[in-house]
Design a protein around this nucleic acid. Structure first.
Lengths: 215, 215
DNA sequence: TGTGTAATTATACGATTGTATAATTATTTA
DNA sequence: TAAATAATTATACAATCGTATAATTACACA
């Protein structure tokens, strides 16, 4: 190496993390990025060549940072239902902590952004695998009533996770005034609120002696 | 009027509805739009001036088309809980029927698109007002356990609605393979699946003699 | 039949985008 | 000290974007 690097690639990555959470993939402009990082425009192409490659690197790094701490270990001595409860709680707290990026990622994916779609396609199934098997196990145990897996998973994840995503989107888009945000923090984002939703969802999915008629 | 109109404005609106559901606000290009409508580029400015105005017109019209059929009438002789159950079912079926546009709208809003945000800010509260009051009423009746309103509403809407939105996004983005889509149709989108989720959610929120400890 | 006028066309402007590259700088090493 | 070379700069290109407008067309009506 002839000339020592000023590590502008790291500056770019850093700025990228800040901006991506605010603008999403499509809204992220390279010039805005380099300006924010205090770096020459040409350096972007020098290090990353294309925007897609950059965002990929960004997501990959964030993914590694985030998911290192997400080790889910089931206890063999506990029931499938209790393992599921614990697992969903961990997953939801994790989603809460990284809600800004997750909301962006989902929004980008919904908008058809291929980088975001690829990322989700590659990484999401891995993290839902455990939950799916626990749901099936708990159903076999008779602790949860037999539901089609897509329905069961969607219900559980929706009931617990959707409030987090919607809350995050509302907070960031100023769709909610300041006082509402405080309420969100306490009643939707807190560990207690998450645990409460998990309990309610599992209670709703529980096997009951008598199915309630609808309507 | 000197020269008879060929009604290109209606062609544009029609093409707009088709494209908006696929591309979102940001991804919608005027040239792509006029091309799709088989119309000269200049006609766009002639009729709508700006993209924002066009999208506003698009959403307004869609809104009128959609929400005409969404008349929610509570029955006085039924309990608040049963009124809530019926109301959520109607709302969810409605979301299911218009899921393509709704997903786009949410994604655009999450991306900070001001037209989408304005639309949601203006129209969403009106439709949730009834549900909020019914939740409070059912809680006073002792049918639902006392939860903070944001938590109760988010849980209910998330549990019932999130599966629809996620399913729609997955179907459209080819994030789900074809066989999975068939499953979605049956186990997530159907009236029966919706009703099942509503029942489960309300069951989870119900007042129970003894609160289950968590963990 | 000719005139007024609304609808339509072709074209252009300026801004912004992602990407690319030749020239210059600053350092290591021989 | 000179040569080699990685890092950095300034600048440019082609495409696309939303928006705008002068010129042309086609019809209603007097």
């Amino acid at each position: 190496m002839a000339r020592p690097s000023r590590n502008v690639d790291k500056l770019l990555i850093e700025a990228g993390h800040e901006l991506l959470a605010k603008t999403g993939v499509r809204g992220l402009s390279i010039r805005q990025l380099t300006e924010h990082a205090g770096v020459n425009l040409g350096m972007f192409h020098y290090h990353f060549k294309t925007k897609d490659a950059f965002v990929r690197a960004l997501l990959e790094q964030k993914y590694n940072d985030m998911f290192v701490n997400l080790q889910m270990k089931s206890k063999d001595n506990a029931s499938a239902l209790e393992n599921l409860r614990a697992s969903i709680n961990v997953l939801a707290s994790f989603a809460r902590d990284n809600r800004l990026l997750l909301v962006r990622l989902l929004a980008d994916a919904a908008a058809g952004e291929s980088v975001a779609l690829d990322f989700l396609r590659t990484n999401m199934p891995r993290h839902l695998k455990l939950e799916i098997s626990l749901i099936k196990q708990a159903q076999q145990d008779g602790a949860l009533k037999p539901l089609p897996t897509p329905q069961a998973l969607a219900f559980l994840v929706g009931a617990v996770g959707a409030p987090i995503m919607v809350g995050a989107a509302m907070s960031q888009s100023s769709l909610a005034p300041a006082p509402i945000r405080k309420q969100l923090e306490q009643f939707v984002f807190s560990d207690a609120a998450i645990a409460e939703r998990v309990d309610m969802a599992l209670l709703g999915m529980a096997a009951h002696k008598q199915t309630r008629g609808r309507k």
